[in-house]
Design a protein around this nucleic acid. Sequence first.
DNA 1: GCCAACGTTGGC
DNA 2: GCCAACGTTGGC
Length: 153
Amino acid sequence: MNYWLFKTEPDAFSIDDLANKKSKGELWDGVRNYQARNLLRDEVKKGDEVFIYHSSCKVPALVGIASVIKDHQIDDTQFDPSAKYYDPKSTPENPRWYAVTIKHKKTFKEPLPLKDMKQNPELAGMKLLQKGNRLSVMPVDKSHGDLLLKLLG
DNA sequence: GCCAACGTTGGC
DNA sequence: GCCAACGTTGGC
């Protein structure tokens, strides 16, 4: 079992939206970055735990946890010209983008703001805290993941 | 809204 | 394959 962190903009899709999907879960599509794609395709596996992070909002923070309930599949939005994430250079014969399905597990009673994470020496080294980091899907070390779960319950 | 830090694109 | 121009992300 591995830990991951997925970013989402709460205005577009929040932890509450994910919670509302209940056991059905949510297909995490629309990822259009090769590094993130490689993780989704090759390394994110059913049963893994995913920290949900709200970005580009008033208080950027870790807000909850989800679990992966389905391994990667082709992200069909890449073929749909009307979709926001349409990729004209992608073909069904040679798809570029993939998506996994995750299910809401828990919304933390108190979100853990980015600001606080930066101040916790035990979390130093987390990819999320590295300057200039823009990845929307990233690995979380086991030690960091365990600690976060302990902090957040 | 600003801007730093990237990633991507395309001309050469 | 280099690199300038451009677009996007995301904290502040």
